[in-house]
Design a protein around this nucleic acid. Sequence first.
RNA 1: CGGGAUGUGGCGCAGCUUGGUAGCGCACUUCGCUUGGGACGAAGGGGUCGCACGUUCGAAUCGUGUCAUCCCGACCA
Length: 577
Amino acid sequence: MRMSNLFVQTLREFPSDAEVASHKLLVRAGYIRKLANGIYNYLPLMWRVLKKIENIVREEMDNAGAQELLMPFVQPAELWQESGRWDVYGKELMRLRDRHDREMCLGPTHEEVITSIGREGIRSYKQLPVNLYQIQSKFRDEIRPRFGLLRGREFIMKDAYSFDANEEGLDKSYKIMAEAYKRIFERCGLETKMVQSDSGAIGGSVSHEFMVLVNDKSENNAGENDVFYCTKCSYSANSNHAVSVLNEAVTTGKYEKAEIIDTPSTHSIEELSEFLNVSSTIICKSLIYVIDGKYVLALIRGDRTVEETKLMNAFCGNEIRIASAGEIEEIMKESGFNAVAGFIGPKGLKNIEIIADETVKDLKNFIIGCNQNDKHMVGANWGVDVELPDRICDIRLVEENDKCPECGSSLKVTRGIEVGNIFKLGTKYSKAMNATFTDKDGKEKPFIMGCYGIGISRTAAAAVERHHDEHGIIWPLTIAPYTVIVVPVSDQDVQQMEVAQEIYKKLQNKKVEVILDDRAERAGVKLKDADLIGIPYRITVGKTIKDNLIEFKTRATGEIELITPEAAIEKLTENIS
RNA sequence: CGGGAUGUGGCGCAGCUUGGUAGCGCACUUCGCUUGGGACGAAGGGGUCGCACGUUCGAAUCGUGUCAUCCCGACCA
């Protein structure tokens, strides 16, 4: 490709609306252009990168025995009503009506459609296992799209779905996908960590996410997830799913007698522990949440934080939020109290489900809210002063330096970008949608399913997050839009231009993806653009051409070699083979 | 959905307080000159100042509304 023909506009400055490196650089280097909030044009350079990633994905998926197909982007509401998700998916599902007033939606994911394909096409266990995938644009009407391609509303995704006759089959399919994913990201030049995760709205039991770890806390961090990992063993999990063994803590308070005492204006645990001069580990914190419209009181040790996803899952909910001051007032009124947040406790509350984190059950002589403003009960004990709730489970957020649940070493935390995930769906969709096959024993059984996603456009953005410097993008060779850019320093130097043209043609003949910067620009402009766009190799044809030498620069290392044009061509043909 | 901020040529911004018919840098066009890290000179083209209503002789500027965009929050009682 000749640079003079390439459709790309690099900008002198970063766009004002971008925060993170990948967003800034992809816009500035002319790869993407925003069309609407969370919706981007993929310009020619970007599209080449995306196709490279797609092709790696295709090769590995095909090698893993999956077959590519393509499902519609617009889907009928009926399918979603069948699975039951039409009512639970919420506002992220972009709904619309056609001219006949039939309800439709834009596909955010394709479990329903694939299940309908499976139930029509697979009749016998002899046809199993089957793994089908597609690469396609998805649309999710995100609450808050941000970070350019990292969280867009429209994005490109590879989604695969497996059908098996039994759990063992699913385990096998799942494992095959996990291995394929590892290879895919490796080939894209990305180191990933496979972490345990919550299975969220898609449903199912076991799931893992593939995270690109972004540790750099100094700059704007594009990682939207916290990942806890063990320093000794292989345990790692998304914070919404991570569990831990707690370090020892003081759990017996100094108050030997239960009584209600004045604790004026102690709205937070911090204020309370300071006022009473006690450790926050002997305070029982009470929090009111709203899960799918129902009120829940959650109890947790004062030094700990509730992990909302875990709490929500304890109630099989879809939506969770903390109760507002108004709602708390309403709840209090119902039980004949008027306490505000900070003084709430479980005792005497009506019409509310109470759940406790494991951390509270060992508390003795502890401190707890008693639904009276500016007062707390001290020296409380379960079963004597306050009833221990029936439901006790792990609803807490893991913290750094907690102990690993598997080996007991300490846990660390880092930020991560989720580029892929794999789920064991089980029979969630096949049962709901009556998708069955005839098994060996002649009985009709629902498919055991799995689903497997990779964010193609997000993977590209994650690659930029991981691979860039102050001059621009540094694409991994395997997903770079072009392999090499040939830059004649002066377009007026006849010899330089001739040699550059010659190198360009020779590389083209050898099927090396090459750009010739034939623009009538000054050297500085061309060199800056080459760095910004991030082509892995640069051949600069300058004054040294008189000695038959060109400059061969590796973008990633900055290494520069003075070699002959022939040697450069040699290097590049070796590189791509 | 709450809180904050911003909307002025393709991009980045000034002008708004104190109303008088729109400006700078980059980019673009033509010419000259220049060619190893975003040169220089000259001459050009391009903007209903987000939109609507209002105040006024007159609105980018003041007021009301609305839309869009960005950030923060969706949070520990």
